[in-house]
Design a protein around this nucleic acid. Structure first.
Lengths: 215, 215
DNA sequence: CGGTGTGAAGAGCTTCACAGCA
DNA sequence: TGCTGTGAAGCTCTTCACACCG
């Protein structure tokens, strides 16, 4: 399949074809009118723009279950990421291989970052350790952090943080699940005995919950 | 601290106070003009609306590193989630306890779902196993699925799927990291020798990458 | 003719600004 | 007076619709 149309790609990705064409147009005019997009050329251009053609050394700090899962995760290598080092505070872990890479002790964190030219760090430590680890990573030169610890990290300007909270994803599902149950009940009982009025229109499974929730 | 103002909450959450008040207003009028929000009452109302006061039994399918990490994750219990069962296709895993819960074999999946009244399933299997597992979960009555496998799952209407792709989060960081590097280089070299024009304005670290990317 | 690239319209979300109430 | 609750303005992202070109 040498070429592909925006319509086909849109169907495959589950989005609108106009949106897809508009997104592509921001990268340049890589399509041919009346034909479509040359697949190979398009893949190359998008890969380049997204940085997939580069090699990104990353370190993972905190080699518990989650850290080990990340170290073993196959999806990284194919996207240009290379696990340069695994770091843990537990001396008993030091030297132990995880996913074929020996775990190193936190004491050497700065040295490891420096020697490998790492600019992306992954934090998979317990909540309490996250901020100190983050501070050390930043001080050592890391400018992007992926945070799995259930804490809000504070970082200086110029450093990016992305937070992944596994329980929030479940919570979003539970929120919609609750709505489903509530709507069934209301449909049966009729609108009169509704337990509480809801001001907002349900936007369906794709809408997120509000940004603020109690700890 | 018995009450709190929208301004204080907004500062803590890093959002605009008007947005916060508007979000709260969708749940009802739980504040007092001139005073603020009663903390205890507000926490209760939000918890109830988000479904945190309910007990949500979940099953985790695929007890590899990631599945084990999820089973051990402390954040679930405090949000009303209860790991009802761990399921794996490997007979060698059966009976083995992970996070204090014995792993059960995939053969019993339907029975487990039914007996525990599970409506939320977590898929942490390899990519190839995800869709069959998903189909069985749905057939058994699960209506919400959290998918960690790097596959797009197809489900019937009425079933919610949320996908967590760990490598995409890293990719987003790498994307911004690349931009940072590019901007530095451009600043040094001047605009004349820029390697490629970029049509889109950089919206900073909070903007996501486009929705479509090559496999 | 077929499909891209894009100006313009539309929809949704965020912020402003202030009336109204404790 | 102080702070909520909210109509309206502003902004961003999405979709439409079609000129234009291979």
């Amino acid at each position: 399949m040498p070429t592909v149309s925006s319509e086909e790609l849109a169907a495959a990705a589950g989005v609108n074809s106009a949106k897809l064409r508009k997104d592509f147009s921001y990268l340049g005019s890589y399509g041919t009118r009346g034909v479509g997009y040359d697949v190979e050329y398009l893949v190359y251009q998008i890969s380049r723009e997204l940085g997939l053609t580069q090699d990104w050394p990353v370190v993972i700090v905190g080699i518990g279950n989650l850290g080990a899962a990340l170290a073993n995760y196959g999806g990284f290598a194919s996207r240009g990421f290379r696990v340069a080092a695994l770091i843990d505070a537990d001396p008993a872990m030091a030297g132990k291989p995880v996913a074929g890479i020996p775990v190193q002790h936190t004491d050497d964190l700065e040295k490891i970052i420096d020697e490998n030219g790492v600019s992306i760090g992954v934090i998979a430590t317990p909540a309490g350790a996250a901020q100190p680890v983050c501070d050390r990573l930043v001080a050592a030169g890391v400018t992007s952090i992926l945070n799995f610890a259930p804490t809000v990290l504070s970082v200086p300007d110029g450093v990016d943080v992305r937070k992944v909270d596994l329980s929030i994803e479940l919570q979003i599902l539970a929120f919609h699940e609750q709505r489903k149950a509530g709507e069934e009940a209301e449909a049966q009982a009729g609108a009169a005995a509704a337990p509480a009025e809801r001001g907002n229109d349900d936007k369906g499974p794709d809408g997120d919950v509000p940004a603020v929730m109690p700890a």
